[in-house]
Amino acid sequence: MSKSTDYEPIDLIVISLAREINDSESCYTGIAIPSAVVAVQLARMTHAPNLQFFYGGYWINPDLDVDLFTIMTDTEAFVESISKAQGFSHLVQLYQYWEGPKHTLSFGIIRPAQIDQFGNINNSVIGDPHHPKFRFPGGAAAGDIINTCSRVIAYVPRHDVRTFVPEVDFITGRGSSPKWRKDVGLTDYQGIKTVVTDLAILEFHPSSGKMCVRSIHEFSTIDEVQENTGFDLEIPKDIPTTRAPTKEELDILQSKADPLSIRNFDSRNR
């Protein structure tokens, strides 16, 4: 970290995720990844008030001023969260939008434990699957989202060589390779388009499908980004700097979108 800022890296992750969201889109996020729900709420409170949001498959467009932890630990807060949602979704109702008859959701947000240069993700296992060195909890819906949402936004709270590997140990969800998606008939679902980390924002080359740098944060250097990535990134000649959070974004994040700072569950010291 070469430059001090008046915000934390996790703030920029959340704000950058929110900026990936367009108004009037539809989306899903799971319940176990706090920065995802904060980013969606921030987008709804700023530039995307007409977003259609399935939260965890229960709440539709919730106006939550409490976080999920509170909802789970406080029955009154749970009941209140229902009254503050515009709707309430059953699992099978949500799945109408995943391969079902309804329209495709615009995007989903995931947090991969491992990601490789072609956007394959691993949330399952390191080493022999039957005799693993490390067993992650499992992909839950991450693999489904990659092949059922129009695009996927990923975030990685700590950008390092353990997460960014040349080839994932195990493919829980298949990557962004345009050729593979064409071969199996999944061109409507682009896979991961953007990866937001605490050092940079990454994307995938439209034809090769290989990961490249879109921008680096004002407090990181390109050497730092490359050193913490286990493969050669495609780096543009003039590297843009990620737009710093505006005062308005920071204010709304801190006062309304995440007053209890649940995004800090995702914060990792460097």
């Binding site: 399952s124 990659i146 092949n147 195990f170 829980t172 298949r174 990557g175």
Partner: peptide, 13 residues
Amino acid sequence: MLRSLLGSDLVKL
């Protein structure tokens, strides 16, 4: 039949 598992190593196991 479903499509969301296409390309996943979960299938290989």
